[in-house]
Design a protein around this nucleic acid. Structure first.
Lengths: 205, 205
DNA sequence: TTACTTCTCGACAGTACGTCGATAAACTCG
DNA sequence: CGAGTTTATCGACGTACTGTCGAGAAGTAA
């Protein structure tokens, strides 16, 4: 359910087909959930027969996983300054959230679909877990540092708090029709979760 | 997909069958997601044939919806003191969260499954929306009152903030293996989201 | 050409869904 | 009781989608 079955290597024509399947999937996922997409549609989009589809992927879930992996890098981009910094750095947090929100605007249906399908499909669950862990680990470390430095008040276990922040972020972005409009509010709220209102003043209405 | 097809009224034997289906569904949903449950299983659990199932419900989603409606009341119970009160009332918030967490411990799989299936099934989406609206409306009003009274700092639009809190709560409870262990941390974090650290001190490690 | 890998497809088998019409069981009321 | 109606049950059917198999067409290279 996760590794391609037939192909070996070679930059040949079947590659274009594989791309076409991925492209078709991306297009369809922007309009409807995975469950409503049939292998026929995917195959038709790549101009091959349904059976041929199975030469490239072993299920539509594999297609989604491939799509998601292709996007893995983008999801954590620009988070460095915030996650590796210290104190209630509004700007850094915002700079981390903006590209994330953009990604959610562009691929929201796909990401939300993947998240919803994750419990019940190990490879998807693993993908989500990895992403979450990457965020939580670094954020928890940051919280620990800030508390030690007296920059943040005591509170929930850093890892738990970081988990709550990740949950909030994901749920909010997944649920919103206009994720980018949420950025400023998310900044405020995430900072409050960590710092109380240490030096925080709401940036924009 | 949402209203029963055949039955009229009368406290007769078919009622027991309907109950049996609901019971079976509840039991199965505790172990696996809706997608992995077949009508056959539901029918077998109620000791009727697959076709007979359709006399009672028109799909397994309808069963889930019925189950959910039967639980609608419990979900908002004990939230009154918190939602109708004022200021960072740790106790009231905790009293609201405890029964909620208990419910999530007992029926977490079912609730999480319903949430995951909601986008893609109007009746479920509606159910979720109603629940969310009920919470958000009252909480937003509370935030507005508290700000007017100088009890809470300014921040995101009350409705937006309330929405974020609802998202956080739901996502956190849905994702946790032990929701009740999360209550104290949720209390801390929700209060911080609304009040910054106005008078808040973390209750328990 | 031959020999090989890459790619394609039709045909098949399996599973689950939802509908229909025939009929059985249970109630109702004369 | 027994005729009529509602309530409940089921088998058979048609449909949609999934995934596999094996035959073989293209492409590539000696």
């Amino acid at each position: 359910m996760s590794t391609p079955p037939g192909r070996r290597r070679g930059p040949s024509k079947g590659d274009r087909r594989e791309r076409a399947i991925l492209e078709t999937a991306r297009a369809l996922l922007a309009r409807k959930p995975l469950a409503d997409i049939t292998i026929d549609e995917l195959a038709a989009g790549a101009e091959i027969s349904r059976s041929s589809f199975y030469f490239y992927f072993d299920s539509k879930l594999s297609v989604l996983v491939a799509l998601l992996h292709g996007m893995a890098g983008e999801l954590g981009r620009d988070a460095g300054p915030w996650l590796d910094g210290a104190g209630p750095d509004t700007t850094a947090l915002r700079e981390a959230l903006i590209p994330l929100a953009r990604l959610w605007r562009e691929h929201g249906r796909m990401l939300a679909g993947a998240l919803a399908a994750a419990p019940g499909c190990p490879p998807l669950a693993q993908w989500r877990e990895r992403l979450r862990a990457a965020h939580v680990d670094r954020l928890a470390a940051r919280i620990t540092r800030d508390r030690a430095a007296g920059l943040a008040p005591d509170g929930p276990e850093p890892r738990v708090l970081a988990g709550l922040i990740d949950d909030l972020r994901t749920a909010a972005l997944a649920g919103s029709a206009d994720p980018e409009a949420l950025v400023d509010d998310l900044v405020t709220v995430e900072l409050r979760m960590i710092y109380g209102d240490f030096g925080d003043h709401h940036p924009a209405g």
